[in-house]
């Protein structure tokens, strides 16, 4: 039984996080968590309080064969099917040149007089190569490709934003052909910490309203300092 008394509830949450509950009690708490907001909040608060203690355990390299075991278990699960992102050689060559370009564009933005707090990010590939410059502008977003490359035939690129604290990303639409895109104000309010990502989706965009394809590019909106 999960106690209704708030003091007893907090004590239970504390011992759950500390790890001293026995198997039966621990199972009860784990079962109740998804449907018990007060318990969940108390557990989260205790996790935050005690979190630094976890790092008292000295790090140790896991056995080298463990990753293979994990991969095998993941492969056995149907939901783990992912499309690998394989940037071609040409793409790599583009990327190399684009780092300098990204730096130049960022400097250009920094030097402009700012009438509103400036926010920007550079969306990176999974290999940390800069791909898109994103700038918040008058409540909307402006995107400029740093290295335009052809989209996989029969697929489209979809833009998403995940505001801090949101649980599901918001679709900002499909990226048109060419190296430019803009998002009208009102669709999403740009704010620091907002994740922006571009995923690869079937024609017409994700059928589920959530990203279904691999993330091609991702970055986090941040205030431009010194502007």
């Amino acid at each position: 039984m999960i106690p209704s008394d708030s003091e007893a509830l907090d004590a239970l949450a504390a011992e759950h996080v500390l790890g001293t509950l026995d198997a039966r009690e621990a199972r009860e708490v784990s079962r109740a968590l998804p449907t018990h907001p007060a318990l969940r909040e108390a557990v989260a608060a205790w996790e935050a309080r005690l979190a630094p203690l976890a790092d008292l355990a000295p790090p140790q390299a896991p056995p080298p064969e463990l990753w293979g075991r994990i991969e095998a278990s993941l492969g056995a699960r149907p939901e783990a099917v992912v499309t690998p992102l394989r940037p071609g050689r040409l793409w790599k060559a583009w990327s190399l040149g684009s780092t300098a370009l990204a730096a130049g564009l960022a400097a250009f933005i920094l030097l402009r007089p700012a009438e509103e707090p400036r926010m920007m990010t550079v969306l990176l590939t999974s290999g940390d190569q800069p791909a898109w410059l994103v700038e918040a502008e008058r409540g909307g977003l402006r995107l400029a490709s740093l290295n335009p490359r052809p989209v996989e035939p029969g697929r489209v690129q979809q833009l998403w934003a995940l505001p801090p604290g949101a649980t599901a990303p918001v679709s900002l639409g499909l990226i048109p052909e060419g190296g430019q895109a803009s998002v009208a104000p009102g669709l999403v309010r740009p704010e620091p910490g907002m994740l922006i990502e571009i995923t690869l989706e079937p024609p017409g965009g994700s059928p589920t309203g959530r990203p279904t394809g691999p993330i091609l590019f991702i970055g986090r909106l941040a205030p431009v300092r010194g502007s």
């Binding site: 099917v81 992912v82 499309t83 690998p84 992102l85 999974s126 995940l162 994740l195 990502e197 995923t199 990203p211 279904t212 394809g213 691999p214 993330i215 991702i218």
Partner: peptide
Amino acid sequence: RGIAAGEAGA
């Protein structure tokens, strides 16, 4: 976030 979206390698 990348793992949640199925990004390979994340």
